[in-house]
Amino acid sequence: MGQENGSAEKGDDGMSGTDTSLLVIDTSYGSTVGLPGREPCIETDSRSHVERLQVNIAKVMDQAGLSADDLRTIVVGLGPAPFTGLRAGIVTAKALAFATGACLLGQDILEPQARYAYSRFKRQGQDHARLLVLAVNDARRRQLYYRLFDDFGGAEAPARPLTEMGIDYPAAIGEKIAAIAEERESVDQGPVALVISGHGAGRYADQWERLDQHSDIRVMLDEGSFLEDRTRGTGLMAACASIRAQHGLIDPVEPLYLRRPDVSVPNPLKHVAVQS
């Protein structure tokens, strides 16, 4: 992660979060398409990307009275997420950027998810406990994508992740996070409050037991994606991408698959040794 590939192709004058010429496209779960500050178009069916995604883009643009030529910046979700849908969103964004000349920014979804959780849980009287956020996304096959974040250094600074992005079974993620939280306790001399936030947080509620058993870690579950928040979702994506870009953190616009491709090698046949 954090690989840099120079600066964005076009000027950064389309970067402000309220700019109507900024389009957000994400297909990390179902799909969310929107212009920050306006009603987004959200699909929950993860198998309708080929049919619906471009239609939805046209719809939100039409509703805003904009045409493709007005696009200045496109922010696209890079996952981590299961394969096919993610790719549909990224290739769509790349093709739009190519055809319109808009600046294309990729944004992983775990950082805005963590910001989203942090903003909603930090004021809930956490007894001065250190607030950590474990952002997750459902990877199917009983696994989750995850990344652990510490306190945010303020609204205008990039997030401070404590781990790399990963994929694992919830119970195994719980083990790793408990170990990190214990370490933090000894450093900070205080209790830790942990929000597990994203798709899969609640679904695997019974699997966070390693964390629950730990008396000094208070666990709160926050099921659902920030992208389903109709008023804040697209704005958060745009803001994260914008902050990262301002700090020179331009991620390559490539899908964060994390999982290796499924490969089944055909049955071995009895070979006749020949030179070809």
Partner: peptide, 20 residues
């Protein structure tokens, strides 16, 4: 292959819309 077709068709739809 469905996963391959999905990429080409998604990209083509975006190009076609953007270029009208």
């Amino acid at each position: 292959l469905a996963g391959c077709l999905a990429v080409g068709v998604s990209g083509a739809k975006a190009l076609a819309w953007a270029a009208k």
